[in-house]
Amino acid sequence: MRVSTSQTYQRSLSLMSNLSAKADLQQSQIASGKKVMAPSDDPGAYRQLAGIKRAEAGDQAYAANVETAQGILEQSDDTLGNIEAQLQRATELFTNAGNDTLSPSDRDTIGKELDSIRDTLFALANTRDSRGQPLFGGATGDLPFTKAPDGTITYVSSGEPAGIPIGDQTVIQVGVTGDRAFASGSSDIFAVIAAFTTALGSGGDIRAAASTAAAGTSEALVNVTLAHASVGARGTRLEMVADQLGYAATARDDARSKVEDVDLAATISEFQQTLTVLQATQASFTKLTALSLFDYLR
């Protein structure tokens, strides 16, 4: 009888301990809304959640990079638009300067405006992005254009700038190097404008100089337009990547919810049942421990 009573005590104690632990877990799940909070809760589910969190962290970094890249491309788009406007104005001035009816004073005014346009283009060509990197620079990260004491403007960068990671083993270039954009060969707009203003001031064949300058500016405009289109295409690509990252985030959130989130109504119901069983077990154990040896002998 002593052995039997001892075993009964032990079974009751073990049952109450298990029920109490179960009630504590259910209560924690109800409070947190999570059913997996530690590896011991569900090792397989915990590993799955860890994988989801790693993927989420990686994609969040890529999403931040996409946002940065989009901002830089928007800045490039605006800057290239300003450059196009300056080139178009320069073309108008070349045409006007070739008019034989203009006075020397008018030509002087045109020359001064062209010098201002050249300075504006120089500043635009050395624009820095939100990271402090030149929009039209090369691999070194230095300003791409320099101006010599005599006013000569030269492209000094080389190579391609580092791309921005936007996915696993995927990077995107957000800049256009200055030599490709508006400073290559006969379309070097800085040289084109400088040559024309020199001719304008010397009083030579302005009509021929204006024709040459207009041709060079037209070629430069083609280069800028191509760079502008390239920026737009990359912006479209980034929109697609951003959408894909958004879809992946939604899918991961659904997967995480299925593994981790508690069915609150069901868990509350189970918690109430656990408490009921625990209370009944505690009541039975109390009665059992109150039994004396006399109670057994009666």
Rank of each mutant, 00 (worst) to 15 (best):
R54S: 14
R54Y: 06
A55H: 03
A55Y: 03
A55L: 13
A57K: 11
G58Q: 14
Q60L: 11
Q60P: 00
A63N: 09
N65K: 10
V66A: 06
V66P: 04
E67T: 14
T68M: 13
T68R: 14
A69F: 04
Q70N: 10
I72K: 07
I72N: 05
I72T: 12
Q75C: 00
Q75G: 06
D78P: 00
L80C: 04
L80D: 02
G81A: 04
N82F: 04
E84I: 09
Q86S: 14
L87N: 03
L87F: 08
A90D: 08
T91W: 00
E92P: 06
E92R: 01
L93V: 06
L93F: 07
L93I: 05
T95P: 00
T95D: 00
N99C: 06
T101S: 15
L102T: 12
S103Q: 09
S103R: 07
D106E: 12
D106A: 12
D108Y: 06
T109E: 13
E113Y: 10
L114N: 04
L114S: 05
L114C: 06
L114I: 08
D115N: 14
D115H: 03
S116Q: 15
I117M: 05
I117L: 11
R118K: 15
D119I: 00
A123F: 01
L124I: 03
L124N: 04
A125E: 09
A125N: 07
A125G: 15
N126K: 08
R128T: 15
R128C: 00
D129W: 01
D129P: 03
S130D: 08
G132E: 09
Q133S: 12
Q133V: 01
P134D: 02
P134S: 02
P134G: 02
L135P: 07
F136D: 06
F136P: 11
A139M: 09
D142V: 08
D142G: 09
L143I: 07
P144G: 11
P144T: 11
F145L: 08
F145S: 08
T146A: 13
K147L: 03
P149F: 04
P149K: 08
D150C: 09
D150G: 10
T152D: 09
T152I: 02
T154C: 07
V156H: 04
S158Q: 13
E160I: 11
E160S: 15
E160H: 04
